[in-house]
Nucleic acid binder design. Structure first.
Lengths: 186, 186
DNA sequence: TCCTGAATGTAGCAGACGCTACATCGTTGT
DNA sequence: ACAACGATGTAGCGTCTGCTACATTCAGGA
């Protein structure tokens, strides 16, 4: 027999899968419970309320996402802006990451409306990802690493948003323009 | 007495206000009807279904938004990248535009999940805004205007997303890095 | 052996959702 | 005068929402 913690943890894993495939707006108690192989009744026994369920599950997903990124682009020798952008672009466009990106926009949308758990989690994820970029980016001597990483992240988010609304061509030609600038300036 | 079209149109205006203040997820029939000073029954008499209501109202909002941008940054002499970014940044951060930006993320989130009306409308708005930027941006001779405008839009979207999730500092330092590059390169 | 307390099932609450059937107005054309 | 028709109110449908009250089962300690 499993302990309470183990069962709770297993539920989180399964609910994370459900969140990935169905999105934040479809994350209501009964479907979540079904995905976790239990009942809404038990979900509210394991967790205080729906907010706690979402918060815990989203944090779990953030860990998963970073682990996947680490695997695809291991920390090691730093890469120049252009190279890193290309490598990350490939990962972010892959089918295994796409669900995370959908969820990320859901989160941003909620955060923009001021929902506190969304703001917290989204902010934390952004911070982690910024650190992730910083540790993998190489810049020229006269440049500021932190600022370049911020530029990288901001630009990536913009590309992702334009992809999401069905305008990948804009994102693509923006990438061309940016790396052309880089080649010239850096 | 007003005609049916006039009343329908007035309802759209009022529902647009409601959408701006309450967000897409709160746009359910009964509150929309209350905001429009009518009943859910009459809303579904004016429009085929909820989708048509949202589609018409969102298009109305897109018009409003572009009109407001035109007023704040009139077309005329083109501006260099850095200057335009600054001017638009001020507008986009203003209180009168903020509700539009919230809605924009809602739209992106829905589009990312593949909802067709969201994809359509978001794409059209992005196209219009890209044209808006193109007509106001000045680039050096060796640069590509279209690509620079795409870069501008992409970067702006990224800044906006980072603002929304409570990390304006990342967006700010990204802007610094980008314009530093521009100064050097262009 | 009995008792206690944790784990879990069953049922239901009150409210919201999109949408519709039906009845009733008031106007207009004949 | 009366019929026809558009406009609108009332009421409700079936389903979903987060959450809870209550009852039961089951394991371990006294």
């Amino acid at each position: 027999m499993k302990t309470r913690e183990e069962r709770r943890d297993a539920a989180v894993e399964l609910m994370a899968d459900h969140l990935l495939s169905e999105g934040l707006s479809a994350a209501t108690l009964r479907p979540l419970a079904a995905a976790a192989g239990t009942s809404d009744r038990m979900l509210l026994y394991y967790f205080a309320d729906k907010d706690e369920i979402l918060s815990v599950t989203l944090h779990r997903l953030a860990e998963r996402m970073l682990a996947q990124l680490d695997e695809a682009v291991p920390v090691g020798k730093p890469r120049p802006f252009r190279i890193l952008l290309e490598e990350v672009g490939v990962v972010v466009a892959s089918d295994s990451i796409k669900p995370f990106m959908h969820l990320w926009l859901d989160l941003a949308s909620g955060a923009s409306r001021g929902l506190q758990p969304h703001l917290d989690i989204a902010g934390q994820i952004a911070d982690k990802f910024l650190a992730w970029v910083t540790s993998r980016l190489k810049v020229k001597a006269h440049e500021n690493l932190a600022a370049s990483a911020a530029l990288f992240l901001t630009f990536l988010e913009g590309m992702h948003l334009l992809d999401a609304i069905g305008r990948p061509s804009i994102a693509g030609s923006a990438a061309t323009a940016l790396t052309a600038n880089s080649r010239r300036a850096i």
